[in-house]
Simulated assay, not measured.
Amino acid sequence: MSDVSSGRNRDRDEEGRARNARPRDGLGRPLPYGAEGVARQPEGVVRTPEETVAEAQALLDAGRPFHAHEVFEDAWKSGPEEERGLWRALAQLAVGLTHAARGNTAGGARLLLRGATGLTTWRGATARPTPHGIDLTSLETWATTLAEKVEKQPPALDAATNAPRLHP
């Protein structure tokens, strides 16, 4: 569906919200209309924490951190208030890996560090080092180490090879 009332065409979803319908590659970059893309993650899916972690890990392992970010974002938006900081930080880690894999080293490193800080803050506030089996300490180390690597070693890195392990 398009919106032409503003004088320009905009893709819309079934509810009329602006949503780019262009296909996307594995790192979430828009491709030309008609190109073969990868399946997009449905938005607004409510999953259990265990389902969220399993689905996100599968996407990370497949080199699709942008799509893992969308899974974490669903948990962030639909989960209990006390866990929103956890899911937001995990989404930032996935987006940081996305940017690093796209070759945006500065943005990638910044988001990886922001996500690591979010995990540290959330863990400290809740005294929960392994919520839903997620090893936050190892993830913080992974993120800070990868941020340093990204800053020192442009260009883009392989997302699947550099994906984190959410469970020990």
Rank of each mutant, 00 (worst) to 15 (best):
L119F: 05
L97C: 08
R110D: 15
L112G: 05
G103V: 05
L112Y: 07
R110E: 09
W87P: 08
W122C: 04
R102A: 04
K77G: 04
G107F: 11
L119W: 00
A89T: 04
G107A: 00
A91G: 15
A94K: 03
E83I: 03
L93D: 04
A91D: 02
W76Y: 14
F72C: 06
R84Y: 10
L111K: 09
A100I: 02
G103I: 00
K77A: 09
G85P: 03
L112D: 01
G96C: 08
T105F: 07
T117L: 08
A75Q: 10
G85R: 10
V95R: 12
T117W: 07
E83D: 14
P80I: 04
A91P: 09
T120M: 14
G118Q: 01
P80Y: 09
T120N: 14
E81F: 09
A94L: 06
D74N: 05
G115A: 06
L113F: 02
A109E: 05
Q92H: 12
H99R: 15
L86T: 06
T117R: 15
W76N: 01
T105Y: 00
D74W: 03
G118E: 09
L111N: 03
L93S: 06
F72G: 07
Q92R: 11
A94F: 12
T120C: 01
L90D: 11
A100R: 07
A106D: 14
G85N: 06
K77F: 15
T105R: 14
E73S: 13
G85M: 05
G115C: 07
D74E: 03
R102S: 00
L112T: 02
A91M: 04
W87G: 09
G118D: 04
G96K: 09
P80G: 10
A89P: 02
G107D: 11
L86M: 03
L93V: 13
G108K: 04
Q92S: 07
R84D: 09
T121A: 09
V95D: 10
G115F: 05
E81S: 14
A109L: 08
A91K: 12
L86D: 08
L90Q: 04
R84G: 13
T105P: 00
A101T: 12
G108S: 00
N104R: 06
E82N: 10
